[in-house]
Write a protein that binds this DNA or RNA. Structure first.
Length: 560
RNA sequence: GUCCCCGUAGCUCAGCAGGACAGAGCAACGGCCUUCUAAGCCGUGGGUCGGGGGUUCGAAUCCCUCCGGGGACGCCA
């Protein structure tokens, strides 16, 4: 529960009580109360909150909306509420509610008390898993992985603040067809570098990173692998390369501010026979059939457009089969909510994955797949093609090096996951106003500076009980207070909608209101009581900016 | 052909579990630094919310259709 929520609930109750009283007195006729809303109007003159119940009730009550609204308002006015200043009927029948500011002046004490946990909901006792990035350990992390990392991690942070027990997981695709191709590539490079004239596999990993890896293998093992049996040679090459790649992914993401709770290896599913198990289970349930020597899952039974192969004619399971086993494992671990962050190129996979979950007897509603549209990388207006194979793209570690972690994370999360993201490296590198992260960080640094100045002047902010927040009467002060008060509600909306961009938007707005306040009013060298109240306003604004930036994984610098 | 995302100001995008005159940043123009950081603030101009139809008291938001851009439709992952 948060301040804004409490107000909402209070007002909803006030209105429902009034409507019911009207019905009892025969002033209104209706069977069931429609699902009405109490919202913050765009226009300030329309009050602090507005309610649309009268329009919704009009048909059933056989009465003009304005007439209904007036009836309700008259009933509300028979009771006097401390928080409500006045209520009006406006427009087609809106009930506009004007509050006095008393509730706002409770906000500073609340934020002051909670500090770095301001915005957090109480624990819900619900476990949610967020799986994201899960890049193939066969190449460098690209821009799609970077966006997935920023979105996934921010979403996980939001869910944590919203009261969920969150687990972050990375699924390591260290088995399957791609790994075979990867091993072919390693082996070919190894032999080539040892003087063998071999053609490189047509679909192999041609990137320079593979060559570099093999060079390191050579400096460690020399020509030893030439004498090994092919199977042993391939295993040696692959084990080394996988360890190196996973380590690289781990370190790069860590450097991006992304830390996982679980690194889940696909290989362990194969080794433990989990894939055969799940295939057998589906077979027993009659959800599979054989055709052209392959085994097909009947996705169409669950609303998919076509069936999907899970066992190839060569007897090997497909990626989908492994993924079913993986998701079975997730659900067996007892999560209440499972979220996957996937690139939009996987959208065809969504319906059958949900179908498989249902086939396994779990509730597909508990699985949410957040699809994010792909990133287009530009350099000075020219598109940079992202090819993991050729290795000619910019990798995440290079991106962090070039534009910095803060700007990169903010940029990736600012846009709705539904939108294509054009990322121009030249633009991001400029570190000017085009990068909104500086706008927010600058607000934070400015507040820190005020407190430094205060210290120099020997001014100390007293405890909350010695401060009178009601001295904050200026438009800019009230706007800032309201925005700070909104924070917990903003988090819960962002969690519900799985919309990390909302937090970026929120903190931009908050910083904007601060800058506006800063340019209109002074904090220091005021009447002492006012100075104290404004110091408190700065104090809680700073906390709220910091808590927001923490969610985004962006630093809050005290000086800029 | 089927499916997914997008189409809002010159540019990049918010808003979209329907709500009252459509928002921000950048760009353009004009102001604001002898007192807390001008990476800032204030103001001005700029939009048939891709087109058409429908549902509704009310549609940028929901539904249908068409157009335009991107993506997915492998016994790849």
């Amino acid at each position: 529960m948060n301040p804004v929520q409490e107000l909402h609930n209070f007002l909803k109750k006030v209105i429902i009580d009034a409507i019911e009283a009207c019905r009892e007195e025969g002033l209104l006729n209706y069977q069931q109360l429609p699902d009405f809303v109490i919202e913050v109007p765009r226009e300030k003159g329309h009050g602090d909150f507005a309610c649309n119940i009268a329009m919704l009730l009009a048909r059933e009550a056989r009465m003009a909306p304005r007439k209904i609204a007036e009836t309700i308002v008259n009933m509300i006015n028979t009771v006097s509420y401390d928080q409500i200043e006045k209520i009006e009927v406006a427009g087609p029948g809106f009930i506009n509610i004007f509050l006095n500011d008393s509730w706002l002046y409770d906000i500073p004490a609340l934020v002051y008390k909670l500090g770095d946990i301001y915005g957090y909901n109480s624990r819900l006792g619900q476990r949610v898993q967020v799986e994201f990035v899960s890049a193939n350990p066969t190449g460098n992390l690209h821009m799609g992985n970077a966006r997935g990392g920023a979105i996934g991690d921010t979403l996980a942070n939001i869910l944590d603040r919203a009261g969920y027990d969150v687990q972050r997981e990375f699924y390591i695709n260290d088995a399957g067809n791609q790994i075979e191709i990867f091993t072919d590539s390693l082996e070919t490079r190894y032999l080539q570098l040892n003087g063998y004239d071999l053609p490189f596999p047509e679909n192999g990993y041609a990137g320079q990173d593979v060559v570099d890896t093999v060079k390191r293998i050579i400096s460690r093992y020399g020509k030893q692998l030439l004498d090994m049996a092919p199977e042993q040679r391939r295993k040696t090459l692959l084990d080394y390369a996988l360890e190196e790649k996973v380590d690289y992914i781990h370190k790069t993401l860590e450097n991006f501010g992304v830390n996982y709770d679980v690194w889940f290896s696909e290989k362990t599913l194969h080794e433990a026979g989990k894939i055969d198990q799940v295939v057998n289970y589906l077979r027993e349930k009659g959800y599979v059939y054989e055709e052209e020597n392959a085994l097909w899952f009947k996705s169409t039974l669950f609303g998919d457009e076509k069936d999907e192969v899970i066992m190839r004619a060569n007897g090997l399971p497909t990626y989908f089969a492994a993924d079913i086993a993986y998701h079975k494992d997730k659900f067996e671990r007892g999560f209440d909510w499972v979220i996957n962050v996937w690139g939009a190129d996987h959208h065809g996979h969504v319906a059958r994955m949900k179908g498989a979950i249902e086939a396994l007897g779990y509730d597909p509603v508990k699985l949410d797949i957040l699809l994010m549209q792909l990133v287009r990388l530009y350099r000075g207006g020219n598109i940079v093609r992202m090819s993991k194979r050729t290795g000619t793209t910019v990798s995440l570690d290079e991106l962090i090096e070039e534009v910095g972690r803060d700007a990169a994370r903010f940029f990736f999360v600012m846009r709705s996951p539904d939108s294509h993201l054009d990322f121009d490296l030249e633009l991001a590198k400029q570190q000017n106003q085009e990068n909104p992260v500086y706008y927010v960080q600058y607000a934070y640094a400015r507040i820190c500076s005020i407190f430094r100045q205060a210290e120099v002047a020997g001014v100390r902010m007293p405890g909350i009980t010695e401060i009178d927040p009601s001295l904050l009467q200026e438009e800019e002060e009230l706007a800032l207070l309201r925005k700070v008060a909104d924070f917990p509600e903003e988090i819960s909306v962002a969690a519900r909608a799985m919309a990390p961009q909302r937090i970026a938007r929120y903190v931009l707005d908050l910083a904007g209101l601060f800058h506006s306040f800063y340019n209109h009013h002074r904090v220091l060298y005021q009447d002492q009581a006012l100075q104290n109240a404004r110091l408190m306003l700065m104090y809680i604004t700073r906390i709220t900016i910091k808590n927001s930036l923490d969610i985004l994984g962006v630093n809050s610098p005290e000086r800029m």
